[in-house]
């Protein structure tokens, strides 16, 4: 299948992209690696009138060690995150999670910013960012702002980004704490039926987040609270699905998803040494 026709704008700077978005509003879509957007366009489930290609904004491709956090440019590819020593040393969970995204070809093109801005609850990467307590940086016509990952995912495929904003950077607090990631799927290349990220953070708190258990990527708040209250992994995992509103699909009923969330959370916590 072939996308419906559109106008193509190749942005040469973030400002240019923001200006193009400001001009075209809801008719426009940003194209980074394209691995979330293009499949939708090929089925004509998305048919933007204007595509703004930000794939060549090379100044948004970086991984920087900023001491207490790691800063990753939004256009950094999964492959670069997956193989980064800085990521491995300071936010190891993110590197591991990224290595499970799609397949190698997808990881050669897909970007961290694209994966996050798409707001897909079945995406693995948001779970790592929630568990690690990331901050997202967005640039718009009136300058830059920081958005806590907890405020970022607004609904199914919806984020806190306004139509004229561009996600520019992901900031992840550094930690040398242990972590665990569990992804349960049918085939290696598939989206997670359910997944769980868990990380011991620098403040000694434990971040836990779930994949595909809610219309948005979601923090396993009840589990985190239980851990903070001294519960062990098994006990804390029992409440993993609380507050989640999962859907039934081809691969799992609601009941089974809830069960998987509990099992995978326990395993992720155990892998994180809890």
């Amino acid at each position: 299948m072939i996308p419906a026709a559109f106008d193509y704008i190749r942005a040469t700077s973030a400002d240019e992209a923001i200006a193009a978005l400001a001009e075209h509003g809801d008719d426009a879509k940003l194209l980074a690696g394209g691995h979330s957007l293009l499949p939708l366009m090929r089925f004509r489930l998305a048919r933007p009138a204007v595509v703004v290609d930000i794939g060549r904004l090379n100044d948004l491709k970086y991984i920087r060690d900023e001491g207490d956090h790691v800063a990753i440019g939004a256009l950094t590819r999964h492959r670069d995150v997956e193989t980064s020593e800085v990521v491995a040393a300071k936010v190891g969970l993110l590197g591991e999670v990224t290595s499970h995204v799609g397949d190698p070809q997808v990881r050669h093109r897909g970007t961290i910013g694209g994966a996050v801005a798409h707001g897909d609850p079945a995406s693995d990467i948001p779970s790592a960012l929630i568990a690690l307590g990331a901050v997202l940086v967005a640039a718009g016509p009136s300058g830059s702002r920081e958005i806590s990952v907890d405020d970022f995912f607004a609904g199914f495929l919806e984020t806190a980004l306004s139509p004229e904003e561009v996600l520019t950077e992901v900031r992840i607090p550094a930690t040398d704490g242990a972590w665990g990631f569990e992804k349960f799927n049918r085939r290696a290349q598939d989206w997670a039926i359910v997944g769980c990220s868990a990380a011991v953070r620098a403040d000694a708190g434990v971040g836990v987040a779930l994949v595909n258990m809610h219309p948005t990527p979601i923090r396993a708040g009840a589990t985190e609270a239980a851990l903070a209250g001294g519960a062990g992994a098994a006990q804390a995992a029992e409440v993993a699905a609380e507050g989640c509103d999962p859907t039934e699909d081809l691969n799992a009923s609601v009941e089974y998803r809830q069960h998987l969330a509990r099992v995978l959370t326990r395993r992720a916590l155990e892998a994180a040494g809890l």
Binding site: P39, R186, R187, A188, Q189, D190, L250
Partner: peptide
């Protein structure tokens, strides 16, 4: 283990792409 062509109760094929129809890969 995996593959199944499925329809919903209204006759819509719901395993209509390779993302949904689980053709097996080397990894399984």
């Amino acid at each position: 283990l995996i593959e199944e062509m499925r329809y919903d109760p209204w006759g819509n094929p719901v395993t209509s792409t390779f993302a949904d129809y689980g053709i097996i890969s080397a990894a399984e």
